[in-house]
Amino acid sequence: MTSATDSSAIGLPVPTERLLELYRMMLDARLFEEKAHKLFFEGLVKGTSHLALGQEAVAAGFAAAMRPDDLTFCTYRGHTHTLLRGADMAALMAELLGRATGCCGGKGGSMHLTDVAVGAMGSYAIVGAHLPIATGAAWAAQARGSGQVVVVFFGDGATNIGAFHEALNFAAVWKLPVVFVCENNLYMEYTPIGSVTAVPNPAADRAATYGLDGIIIDGNDVEAVYAAAVEALAHARSGDGPLLIEAKTYRHGGHSRADPGTYRPDEEVKAWLDRDPIPAFRSRLEAEGVESATLAEIEAASSAAVDAATEDARNAPFPDPATLETQVWADGGSRWRT
């Protein structure tokens, strides 16, 4: 098993502008989701929502390392991944609020945020289903010689479903340019992953089965994630086949909407909150000489961006009833008979 937990260990000095960009990305994601959580309790976000508060470093580190034409596939816990590939924040917020200006016109909702234009190829709400789909997108990249890499994010719970194993074997046999990233937040939903999995590292310990290295990274260290992502993308792009990375991280909240996550031991929660990726990274930036004013400027800008997106979404119209039966077929309609 290899481990890449420290960017300096693999000789990758990250320029300050990129570090500040990573900080901005994590903040955007954090503030966006905190707002979404608030709007849920105001009754404005309907249905359900699955927040990735605490897991921002994984999304930011990878998104920052990806090429614009690379493709992201993520789960129903996908607000952050979609946003950080460059999707319009107001369109995402509007989608959560079921508005016409939402990225999916209100037809997708929180669990299906998608923005194909920026390579955010969808949020998939059936656990594990998107791993074979991402593999297929990587097959097309290989077939067309496009040079794209596909990155697919999934939770620890997905490692126990068949699609995970089918996709990994398929991608390994065909040597496809896909990076599988397990965001191990220790809980499949409400149940500790360790209590339902035969091995301690649910993704990494299965890697050898498919002839892959079991790579474990600190998913709360954005620099480590970024360094691992740069390396993984280069590997996949060079034609050396897929990679499987397990990022250890933690969900600050519960599984979904109002779940307070009380099944988690207090000391465990506290230990991980102390390892919150954002304040930790902020302290590191200050220690490296970034001025407080620069960080405050980024913080104010993120906050303003979320407020503006929220205002925009709140004021957006509801979907036109005429759209109910559109976009089932490529002709834009839903007609099934003559």
Partner: peptide, 14 residues
Amino acid sequence: EAITGAVMGAAMNG
């Protein structure tokens, strides 16, 4: 699942 997923993903990518 890998076969049907593969054609779906491939169709999304050209």
